[in-house]
Amino acid sequence: MAPQRNPRSRKLRIATTLCAAVVVGAGAGAGLTGWTAPAPAAQEAARDVRAVAAAPSDVRAVAAAPSPSPDPFEDLTADEIADRAVTATQSATSLRMSGRIVSDGQPLDIDFSVNDKNQCTGRVKVEGGTAELRQADKITYMKGDEKFWRASMTSQGMPEAQIDATIELLKGRWLKITPGQEGSEDLSGVCDLTSLLAELDKDPEERRGLTRGPDAEVEETPVATLVKKKTDGGTTPDTTPDTTTPDTTTVSVSQKGKPYILKIVKTGGEEPGTMLLSDYDKPVKVVVPPADETVDISKLEQATPV
């Protein structure tokens, strides 16, 4: 009989790629579908990650509010406003993403700040567990509580004894992943702000056909709302019209200062969610954990069941 492959490193790699799926998947899960496409690594990670949590919340559009006078977008079509929003957002040197996204019916809560120097810091919640992630100098640090690690590893079929041993090794410590180590490739794009924002303009034609909804406010900032509805399927001659719930994306664009994207809400379809974008161009401070509080990912091979 051929020897069985030890699943430990692979399983922990998948667990660590959860954050990659969350950050890059914010585009697909929170309403950027039609404006962007998630990177292949994030797509692969998203397929591997399975977490059960509460039903998504806060997927309502922002409350209506008076538009500023004069309206900075008065002479622009919705598509032209979108063009300006993408250009402005891509010029950002840093930003914060927070909210809830859903992939394959599995909710993930994130709060993440990233800059154009490949630095980031934030946290993710899944199935009652929480994990923090930091990246600086191309080194990734990840610290999860027991619920997070157990949910992540259990969802991948890792043996219970192995899970217990690994959790014991990681208890109160940061998992350290350096370039070239297993898992580093999947996480390499997490803090690449330029690549994340480049996806906004990957296919400009996908964001055509927008309509302008009622003006509103996002955290007391006046915004223009851009709406796109997309229904899978459609109608064909001699067939029953498709009654699938429309996949609706609402993008809120700041009417004050640069026309940054401030909020994205997606309803309907299989990946609803809400994402707030804030703290544009503000410093992102990443605190590197002390060496005595870290565990190199190579040490996971030492996590053996008792």
Rank of each mutant, 00 (worst) to 15 (best):
P259Q: 08
D111I: 00
I177M: 11
M142I: 10
Q302E: 14
E127M: 08
T248W: 12
I264N: 02
L226T: 01
T16D: 10
A165R: 09
I163G: 02
V265I: 05
L210H: 07
L262W: 08
G99P: 05
V190S: 05
E185P: 08
M97S: 11
N118F: 13
A151I: 03
R207Y: 15
G31C: 10
G31D: 08
V59N: 09
P246R: 02
D75E: 11
E271F: 15
P246K: 02
A28K: 01
I297S: 08
P305S: 12
P70M: 00
L196R: 11
R123N: 09
Y280F: 13
T235L: 07
S278C: 04
T248H: 06
G31Y: 05
A92E: 02
D296Y: 01
A20W: 12
T130H: 07
S184F: 03
D232Q: 03
T178H: 10
C191K: 07
D145G: 05
T235A: 14
A161Q: 07
E206A: 06
D281W: 10
R47Y: 10
R50D: 12
A20N: 12
M153C: 09
A41T: 11
S91D: 10
A51T: 09
T235P: 00
T140W: 14
S113T: 08
E160M: 04
A131D: 05
I261T: 07
A20V: 05
V114H: 07
T87I: 12
K256R: 05
S252Q: 03
L300N: 15
Y260E: 11
T16F: 01
V287A: 07
L226K: 06
C191E: 04
L200F: 13
L170P: 00
T250D: 09
L276W: 01
T245I: 12
R173P: 07
I110N: 03
G99F: 06
E217S: 05
M142A: 08
A78N: 03
E220S: 12
T304L: 09
M142E: 10
T250K: 10
L210D: 07
E220W: 04
K143V: 08
G34M: 06
T235C: 14
I177A: 05
G209T: 09
